[in-house]
Simulated assay, not measured.
Amino acid sequence: MQPSAGPGPLPHTRSRAVHWAATAVALAAVLGLSAAVQPSGATARTAPTGKAPDPASARYPLGCPGDGRGTVDVLEHGAADFDGDGQRETVALVRCAAATGTPPNGMFVLAHADGAGERPRIAATLLPPGEGMTADDFAVTPGGAATVSATLRGYSSPDVPRCCPDRERKVKWRWKEGKFVLIPAPVAGSV
Rank of each mutant, 00 (worst) to 15 (best):
D137P: 02
T141K: 11
P120N: 06
P158C: 01
A116I: 04
L126E: 09
I122G: 11
H112R: 14
S157W: 03
D159M: 09
L152T: 12
T147V: 12
P120Y: 04
G132Q: 04
Y155M: 04
G143W: 02
A111E: 04
V148F: 11
P161R: 15
A113D: 08
A124M: 01
A124F: 09
T134D: 02
V140K: 05
G143C: 07
A113S: 13
A113Q: 07
G130L: 00
T141Y: 02
D114Y: 03
I122P: 09
E118W: 07
D137Y: 06
T147L: 11
V160G: 11
V160R: 14
L152V: 14
L152G: 12
P158M: 06
S157L: 04
S157G: 12
A123W: 03
T125K: 02
D114G: 15
P158R: 00
V160I: 14
G117R: 07
T141H: 12
A145D: 13
R121S: 14
L127K: 06
V160W: 11
P161Y: 10
F138E: 03
T151M: 10
T141R: 14
S157Q: 00
A145H: 11
P128I: 11
G144M: 03
H112Y: 02
P142G: 10
G154P: 10
T147D: 02
A113W: 04
Y155I: 12
L152H: 05
D137A: 12
L152N: 00
I122E: 15
H112S: 15
A139G: 12
P142E: 02
A150T: 15
A111S: 13
P129C: 07
T141P: 00
A123N: 02
M133C: 08
G132Y: 03
G154T: 08
A145I: 06
G143L: 01
V160T: 14
L152F: 09
S149Q: 15
A124N: 09
A146E: 01
A135I: 06
T147M: 07
V148G: 10
P128K: 06
G115C: 06
S156N: 01
R153Y: 10
P128Q: 04
T125A: 06
S157Y: 04
D114C: 04
S149M: 07
R119S: 12
D159L: 11
V140N: 06
P120T: 09
S149A: 15
T151D: 00
V148W: 04
S156W: 01
G154C: 09
D137C: 08
A113P: 14
R119P: 02
T147C: 05
T134V: 15
V148S: 12
A146T: 01
A123L: 10
G115T: 06
G144H: 09
F138R: 05
D136W: 01
A124I: 08
G130A: 08
A123C: 03
G143M: 02
T151K: 03
D137E: 13
A116L: 09
F138A: 12
P120R: 01
P161N: 09
A139E: 13
L126D: 07
A146W: 01
A111G: 15
L127Y: 06
R119N: 08
L126F: 10
G130C: 00
S156E: 00
A146F: 05
Y155W: 13
T151R: 13
P142V: 01
A111D: 06
S156D: 00
A123P: 09
G144N: 10
P161D: 11
A135H: 00
F138H: 15
E118P: 07
A111T: 11
D137I: 05
A146V: 07
E118F: 10
I122R: 13
P158I: 03
